[in-house]
């Protein structure tokens, strides 16, 4: 007998089927009068920054003004013209090390916790983590209240990876002092488009 068979047999014997799956649609989950406002407040609370793109404002100019020092910028978004590295064209993900700014797209935001759904849409997803600073472009009408709504909405493509990001990488592992910028992006700026 393989370990798989042994484990499954033991579980089958022990699992008595006694408990039905509870109803989950009746959860009285939090909703906000203005989800976008709540999303912005939560994002700031988790260490992120939210900026609105004004009508007729050029996204590249806005990013440039936010990160005047950034030299190496990585993005595969067609509207981003200031990028000098395209994560779709990078053969070895390690080459993205040293990226000052990564610019990616988020599908929707979650008001209750500042999460943004980022399905992998580039060959090297490392750009989402290895960049010193991360800019996420997020359509401002795409905000849901809570994670129940969020998980009804997520979808995967062929890359088979997706993540919720809520603010910059952080740690409090040294003496419980909160420090932004542990192993991944040291800052996250959400640009509402």
């Amino acid at each position: 007998m393989t370990s798989k068979e042994r484990i499954l047999n033991k579980c089958a014997k022990a699992a008595d089927g006694a408990f039905a799956m509870p109803e989950l649609d009746d959860i009285a989950a939090v909703e906000y009068p203005d989800p976008l406002k709540q999303f912005c407040a939560t994002s700031e609370a988790v260490g992120g920054k939210v900026v609105e793109l004004a009508d007729n404002q050029d996204i590249n100019e806005l990013v440039r003004s936010l990160f005047p020092e950034a030299r190496r910028i990585a993005s595969n978004l067609t509207e981003i013209s200031i990028a000098d590295t395209n994560p779709d064209l990078v053969e070895n993900a390690c080459e993205l090390n040293g990226t000052d700014l990564g610019i990616i797209r988020g599908e929707f935001g979650v008001a209750e916790n500042g999460c943004i759904w980022i399905p992998q849409t580039m060959k090297q997803r490392a750009v989402c983590f290895i960049s010193e600073n991360l800019v996420i472009l997020l359509p401002r009408q795409n905000i849901v209240n809570n994670m129940h709504e969020a998980y009804k909405r997520i979808s995967f493509n062929d890359y088979g990876y997706g993540t919720f990001i809520s603010g910059p990488s952080k740690t409090a592992d040294i003496a419980q002092v909160l420090v932004m910028g542990a192993q991944a992006a040291r800052s996250v700026t959400v640009i509402l488009i």
Binding site: G114, C115, G160, S166
Partner: peptide
């Protein structure tokens, strides 16, 4: 309210 990253590996 959430960990910074909630990652789904498929």
């Amino acid at each position: 309210p959430s960990t910074t990253y909630t990652s789904h590996f498929r």
